[in-house]
């Protein structure tokens, strides 16, 4: 007879649970590629609109390249944010996570990590293409990739708080943007600065470090906040 008095001896650790949550979100995203491609397509389209609207002169485009790149990246990552928790809230998955006995913070971190792997990382990989078409020199590519990669980590984490807070609302898109964009301003400022310095061939480590500091701050605090917000939304 199995002992029903305590939790099972083969209970999963929080790391195992988080790994499964991550794997599940990645599997789901690969089965529904449409959602995956949307932010990327948006990013590419927005950045290719600028040469048409401003001027095809690379020298002029180069002046605005960093800003265009970063505004497009920010909006693209925002686009995917609405789906971060929504489906899981509808079908009761979040409820099961909250009742799993595992720290919800850890599971939220895993979900946010999956979100970054599916939006932030592809954006960082696409960024060189967009940058080159905006007149950035090839030497700037490492700096741009690094700044977008690190910056989107912070964006995903900040966004996870907004996404969790707006879970109970039906049309959350605009409110989510209003909540998330002001908090994302530091990321935008340092990210654009790092990219701009990279484009001009100057050292860009200082703003990149500040971006990394923001990402670390997000990693420590954002999962706590989104876990709390999810619990409230379940009530």
């Amino acid at each position: 007879m199995s002992d029903t008095r305590t939790a099972a001896p083969d209970a999963a650790s929080v790391l195992e649970a988080a790994r499964l949550v991550l794997e599940r979100d990645l599997t789901l995203a690969l089965r529904r590629r449409g959602q995956l491609v949307q932010p990327l397509a948006f990013f590419v389209i927005v950045t290719t609109l600028f040469p048409l609207a401003i001027s095809p002169e690379l020298a002029r485009l180069r002046e605005v390249a960093a800003g265009v790149l970063w505004v497009a990246a920010l909006l693209a990552s925002l686009l995917a944010l609405e789906f971060l928790f929504r489906d899981d809230a509808y079908d009761g998955t979040l409820e099961q996570y909250a009742l799993s006995g595992q720290p919800l913070t850890g599971l939220m971190f895993a979900k946010t990590a999956a979100h970054w792997l599916l939006t932030g990382l592809p954006l960082a990989l696409m960024a060189p293409l967009a940058a080159l078409s905006l007149g950035a020199p090839p030497d700037a590519v490492p700096g741009i990739v690094a700044s977008v990669a690190v910056g989107t980590i912070a964006l995903s984490l900040i966004g996870s708080i907004g996404a969790a807070l707006t879970l109970g609302l039906r049309r959350s898109g605009v409110l989510l943007a209003l909540l998330t964009l002001p908090l994302s301003l530091p990321v935008l400022i340092f990210g654009a600065r790092a990219s701009e310095l990279a484009i001009h061939g100057e050292p860009y480590v200082a703003p990149l470090e500040l971006l990394a500091a923001l990402a670390v701050l997000g990693i420590t605090l954002a999962p706590l906040a989104s876990a709390a917000a999810v619990r409230i939304s379940l009530e």
């Binding site: 099972a8 083969d10 209970a11 999963a12 195992e16 649970a17 499964l20 949550v21 794997e23 599940r24 599997t27 789901l28 089965r31 529904r32 489906d87 079908d91 009761g92 998955t93 409820e95 099961q96 996570y97 799993s100 006995g101 595992q102 599971l107």
Partner: peptide
């Protein structure tokens, strides 16, 4: 709480797996 795009088996694995090996 099942995901439409996952099979019954996968759903169970991810659901129960967060709690028990």
């Amino acid at each position: 709480p099942l995901k439409a795009d996952l099979s019954a088996r996968e759903n169970l694995r991810y659901w129960i797996g967060t709690r028990r090996r």
